Each structure stands twice: as C-alpha cells, then as structure tokens.
Amino acid sequence: MRQLPNIITLCNLFCGALAIICVLHAPEFRVEFNGNEYTVTNPEPVYWASALVVLAAIFDFFDGLVARLLKVQSPMGKELDSLADVVTFGVVPGMMLYRLLRSAYYQMPDAFEVSMVNVAPALLVPCFAAYRLAKFNLDTRQSENFIGVPTPAVGLLVASFPMILLYNPYNLAHWLQNIWVLYGIIAVLCYLMVAEIPMLSLKVKEKSLKANWTRLLLVVLVLVSMPFLNYATVPFIFICYVILSLAVPPKVTPA
C-alpha cells in the first residue's frame, strides 16, 4: 500500500506519454482544392490526447489524496509527481500548441515556406512548466496555496483547444486558428506559470465556508456554465480562476 500513490502517479505519466504519441502520430495528408494543394491533419488522435490529459489530471489529483489518507507522503513521491507533471502538463500542451500553430500557418498563402522557427515558441510551454515545477519543489511558501498558475491548470486549458476546434462553441475555433492569438496564449501561459502571484489551491484543509467560499464559487461556475459553454467552459473557468486569485489573493507561507 505504501507504493500505491507512486503507482497512481506513474499512471499520470503513462497517460502523458501516450498523449504525446497521439499528438505526434496524427497523420497528415494532402488534398487538392480549386487547383491548390493543402496539407490536412487528421485530428482524431489529438482528441484522444485531450481525453488522456483529463484522465491524467484525475490521477494527479488522487495520488496526493491517497498519499495523505495512507500517511505515506515522501520526498520521492513529490519528485516523481513533478516528473510526471512536466510530461503530461508541460510537454503535451507544448505539442498540442505546436500542432495548432502548424495548422494555423497552413491557412496562410505561404504555408509551405513556414520555418521551424515559427512554430518553435510552442516549446516554451514545457520549458516554463519544468521551471515552475522545479521551483515548486524548492519553494516552502507553496505548502497551502500556489505561487503562479499550476501546470495541471495549463495542461487542461490547452487540452480543451482541440475539442473547441471540433465543436466550435461561440465561433472560438476561428481564434484558435490565428497565429497571433496562439502566440499570445503561449506568452500569457508561460508568464502565469512563473509569476510571483498567489494562486488558489483546490485542496480543502479547513471545513468552514469562510475558508472555502472561493473554491465553492469555482465549482458553482463550472456547473452553471457547462450547459451553455460546452468545451468553452474550460477556458472560461481558467480565466475565472486567475481573476478570482487576483481579486482575493490566497494566503501563502512567508519566505
């Protein structure tokens, strides 16, 4: 039973590694339309990658919970959790944004002249995620809440993008095919992960309503918005999470 939390963490890592395979193995083929050739990506494997990130987030939630319940928390478990998270919630979102950038460039007239330099900024996400996780392991101020947006939140946000492209709620797919919007998203996410901004943790340590009303508000917003926003609920809740953390800064342990 002592190794059960670590096994759950490895399930997180397994999902992340499998999601990378799904993203990178999404086959591309050329089609001809009005005398012009276009490269099209079969999106189905990327949708599976989104589902795997969600499943990994569930494992990521339960590994720590099980460790606390069994009272088997350990430095190794903490390090293993960060190693899994950098893959699942760092590398996978980076690969998804890489695919989205390529797809956005394919919509442009000079698509076949696009350099690797144009899509390389997507790889900044795993770099900043790794920095954020290393910092988290050494930062004693983040025992109760976070400083900077946690990587699972970033991973779930980016994992929602392929589903938004598929179902196109409120015509958001149009914006995710704009290279400058994607560059902006990459820059904002990288900044938020390492910013010295206290961010709310969803861990419940006190049972009073006063201590947990912000968490309860987020849950209510999820339940209310899902029927109306569909997959756009994820970016909506992400934005609400950041705004709520800025408006009502959670307590962090002094350095």
Rank of each mutant, 00 (worst) to 15 (best):
residue 84 A to E: 05
residue 81 D to K: 00
residue 165 L to S: 08
residue 163 M to C: 10
residue 160 S to E: 06
residue 67 A to K: 00
residue 136 F to A: 04
residue 79 E to V: 07
residue 103 S to L: 11
residue 109 P to S: 08
residue 163 M to N: 05
residue 137 N to T: 08
residue 78 K to Q: 15
residue 62 F to K: 08
residue 49 A to C: 07
residue 123 L to H: 09
residue 126 P to K: 07
residue 64 G to W: 03
residue 81 D to T: 05
residue 79 E to Q: 15
residue 64 G to R: 01
residue 82 S to V: 08
residue 74 S to D: 13
residue 118 N to S: 15
residue 157 L to C: 06
residue 149 V to M: 15
residue 139 D to G: 07
residue 158 V to C: 05
residue 103 S to G: 14
residue 77 G to A: 09
residue 138 L to C: 12
residue 119 V to D: 01
residue 121 P to D: 09
residue 123 L to G: 09
residue 152 P to D: 09
residue 72 V to H: 01
residue 113 E to M: 09
residue 116 M to H: 06
residue 53 V to M: 06
residue 129 A to W: 01
residue 118 N to E: 14
residue 106 Y to K: 07
residue 69 L to R: 15
residue 119 V to H: 03
residue 97 L to M: 14
residue 100 L to K: 03
residue 61 F to K: 07
residue 55 L to T: 14
residue 85 D to N: 12
residue 66 V to D: 07
residue 78 K to N: 14
residue 143 S to L: 12
residue 123 L to K: 10
residue 97 L to F: 07
residue 129 A to R: 00
residue 117 V to N: 05
residue 83 L to Y: 14
residue 154 V to F: 04
residue 81 D to C: 06
residue 84 A to M: 13
residue 94 G to Q: 07
residue 133 L to G: 01
residue 152 P to L: 10
residue 60 D to F: 05
residue 54 V to M: 15
residue 136 F to S: 03
residue 156 L to C: 11
residue 114 V to M: 09
residue 116 M to E: 12
residue 74 S to A: 14
residue 106 Y to A: 13
residue 96 M to V: 15
residue 161 F to M: 09
residue 48 W to A: 13
residue 97 L to C: 10
residue 162 P to S: 05
residue 133 L to T: 06
residue 48 W to M: 13
residue 88 T to D: 08
residue 71 K to D: 14
residue 68 R to L: 12
residue 140 T to H: 11
residue 125 V to R: 00
residue 65 L to N: 09
residue 161 F to S: 00
residue 72 V to T: 15
residue 136 F to I: 11
residue 83 L to I: 14
residue 71 K to P: 01
residue 139 D to S: 08
residue 133 L to V: 10
residue 138 L to P: 04
residue 103 S to V: 11
residue 126 P to V: 14
residue 127 C to P: 04
residue 74 S to N: 11
residue 129 A to Q: 02
residue 82 S to C: 11
residue 64 G to I: 07
residue 141 R to M: 09
residue 159 A to K: 02
residue 52 L to T: 00
residue 69 L to M: 15
residue 59 F to N: 01
residue 143 S to R: 11
residue 158 V to W: 03
residue 88 T to F: 08
residue 73 Q to T: 15
residue 155 G to N: 01
residue 59 F to R: 02
residue 67 A to W: 00
residue 69 L to V: 12
residue 111 A to G: 03
residue 92 V to A: 05
